[in-house]
Amino acid sequence: MRVLLRNPRREIEVAGSCPVHALLSRLELNRESHLVIRNGTLVPGDAQLLEGDIVEIRPVISGGA
C-alpha cells in the first residue's frame, strides 16, 4: 500500500496488509494524534488495510499560541 505522511509531506510504500493500529505502531505514531484515511474515507483502528490501498496518515496536532 502507498502511505502518505505529512509535515513534511512524503510517501512510503508498505508491503502486505495490516490493521490501521498496527501500521501506526509500526511507524511509531500515536493513534491519539493521527487520523487514517483509506481511499478517501476515514477508517477506525481495527480496519484492515490492504495491498493496493492508498492511505493517508494525517497528523492532527497543531502548535502555536
Binding site: R6, N7, R9, R58, P59, I61, S62, G63, G64, A65
Partner: peptide, 14 residues
C-alpha cells in the same frame, strides 16, 4: 490547511 506553521517547531505547547 494540514501543514504546520513553519514557526511552530520547538513550541512548548507542542
Amino acid at each position: 490547511l494540514v501543514d504546520e506553521c513553519p514557526m511552530a517547531s520547538g513550541n512548548r505547547h507542542l
